[in-house]
Amino acid sequence: MKNTENIPENKNHYIERFTKAWAIFIKNPMGKTGLIILLVFMLMAIASFFVPLLGPVYHPMTGADPNITYSTGPSFQHWLGTDFIGRDLFVQLLEGAKVAFIVGLSCAFISVVLGTAIGMISGYAGGIIDTLLMRVADIFMVLPSLVILLILASLWELSIWVIIFIIAIMRWPSVSRIIRSQTLSLKSRPFIEASRVAGASNFRIIFKHIMPNVLPLAFLYMTFRVTSAILVEAALSFLGFGDPGQVSWGMMLQWVWSSGHMFQAPYWLLPPGICISLLTLSFYMLGRAMDEVLDPRLRKEEEV
């Protein structure tokens, strides 16, 4: 009887890999800056849940200050001022951060999950399945997503979740292309062949052997997808086709413009504009820093 009880556990593998990757990541000034900016926005998004509790005045959509009926500049009561019907701009900005996160992350998540699954299947299966899936990907890739969204939004009133879903559907092809090429190179690697010789099914090979190897790449692409989703949603809202029941940064800009305050109220115009730029920039910086973590040349140096 073999002693199978006292096997020293070694659960540190993923922790160890994470700490290693983290060390490279945090050394990168871009990664560090991006992370700090991102943390600030996260705090803003979290704060958006609590601020309305202060009173009905601080509700981003309906909380118009009864004493103010026109746009005012920053004051003690309204840190960034109010919009043309007396709603607090700071509260709207916080709400916008929350929406930007929801839009960015859910879009990125849906498109990356979809893209990764399709990319792995396409690359692994090859042949006719590969050709078909990639042609579909090509078709989606050349569709102008903003124009299509505009047309759809002008026909129906789209809720924020429908918008998220449509953006995600338009964005998976580029992810699936990358994952497919990675899968192609993995497919012929000896450890995949060894698993096949052992009798593993295709399903098992894809999920047990290929997926852990493409996940880091998928994760990287997720950060880039976040950026583009936030920008598309902002553009849509600014053009007046966003979810009318939802405050977002794009919507704030739309209100500045439609209420004719474009050149009169910099305290209203600038914050949402700066926030959109900074948030997308921070995700982009995170992506670049992660790129460095995943760069095989850098990793090799690490192993020496």
Partner: peptide, 23 residues
Amino acid sequence: ENYRSKVQMIFQDPYQSLNPHLS
């Protein structure tokens, strides 16, 4: 399946033939 359980292989490069993500 039956054939594969009877015929196995040892590959050339042990750095390539083991999945780095599996214990």
